[in-house]
Simulated scan of single mutants.
Amino acid sequence: MSQYNFTFSEVMTKKTKPYGKDLAFGRYFTDHMFVMEYHHQKGWYDGKIIPHQPLTLDPASMIFHYGQTVFEGLKAYATKDGEIQLFRPEENIARLNRSNERMCIPQIDPDLALAAIKELVRIEKDWIPKQEGTSLYIRPFIIATEPYLGVAPAKQYKFIIILSPVGAYYKEGINPVKIAVETEYIRAIKGGTGEVKTAGNYAGSLIAQQKSAAKGYTQVLWLDALERKYIEEVGSMNVFFKIDGEVITPELNGSILPGVTRKSVIQLLKHWNEPVTERKISIDEVITAHKEGRLEEAFGAGTAAVISPIGELVCEDNKLVINNGKTGETARKLYDTLTGIQYGELPDPFNWINKIDV
């Protein structure tokens, strides 16, 4: 049980739990959610777990007008021996507070945030699906609720956590996806909000995603905003390329989100003594490496999909089929290791797992 005194109001009628072929990503939600209030004169207060329900907000609430909001995404996993565990939740909470700082939102006590996540997951433990590749997605977020139309940081907020049982993020799963290089739109720029998780980043990316989907691509590869040549992210994931035996990922530059999975991939590769480098990498370098037969693999990394291999990359007139359109050895090993640790099937030498007492 939590050391924090969260009140709990249990739902009267519980929902039917979706499993099997019906379990998509982010379509279903559990019976309860966590809500906590903030007022500039009181700080954070009144943490409670209540039935999952609509929010009642004033139409002048600042979230609707100025987009002052942040969010996170992590997962709870059921092990074969009946345990429930989280993967590096402290990293997500730390990033939430970095996002708060950038968006002028009050900091959340990390211990309180973790206790709220664990208590809500503990209550909803029966919602954690058991099928291979499934998990319970955890979405903490903060919204500005003060009714005010002046452009300034709000004085009132809500911190909310909702849960969703999920299957694979991409229908392809660990199978390679087709990616289009985006040359018209940009995702973010240094000095903007690209390195934090705030809603506007994702809203602004939708038009490029929609355009690429109409042409049969799963996602887009984002280039830098200034020179339109250096690779930044793929969709909403960090991206890696294996060239001449070396794994390369774009260095964090103020516009790239510092992903928890990205950090874990780098740590794993170093643990295996495999060459891994964080640096600028241009789309021209990738195209040249492919033409010369030196581009061995490419893959995205993120919480939702874990590892998503790129089988085909298209940039204007250049069509790059990578590793014959098959999942590469490094991507497969990373996926198997990360998910093995997450589901308790492999040892955790890094102390990444945080178990929930049930």
Results as ranks from 00 to 15, higher is better:
47 G>D: 02
297 E>K: 04
286 V>G: 01
71 F>S: 12
130 K>F: 11
312 E>W: 06
302 G>W: 04
1 M>I: 06
307 I>P: 01
256 I>L: 13
258 P>T: 01
244 D>E: 10
144 A>N: 01
56 T>W: 13
226 L>V: 15
77 Y>Q: 05
289 A>F: 04
135 S>L: 01
31 D>K: 05
285 E>T: 00
145 T>M: 05
89 P>E: 03
103 M>I: 07
48 K>M: 14
131 Q>K: 13
295 L>A: 03
248 I>L: 07
216 G>L: 02
294 R>T: 00
105 I>M: 12
297 E>A: 07
23 L>D: 13
163 L>H: 00
252 L>Y: 00
97 N>M: 01
203 A>D: 10
57 L>F: 02
230 Y>V: 15
200 G>T: 08
24 A>F: 15
141 F>G: 10
126 D>P: 11
54 P>F: 00
242 K>G: 11
188 A>Y: 04
20 G>V: 06
109 D>S: 04
149 L>N: 10
344 G>R: 00
241 F>H: 02
263 K>F: 14
267 Q>N: 15
18 P>M: 08
57 L>I: 12
163 L>A: 11
21 K>H: 13
347 P>A: 09
269 L>P: 06
318 N>C: 13
239 V>I: 14
336 D>R: 02
93 I>Y: 08
189 I>D: 14
216 G>I: 04
304 A>Q: 08
144 A>D: 09
88 R>Y: 11
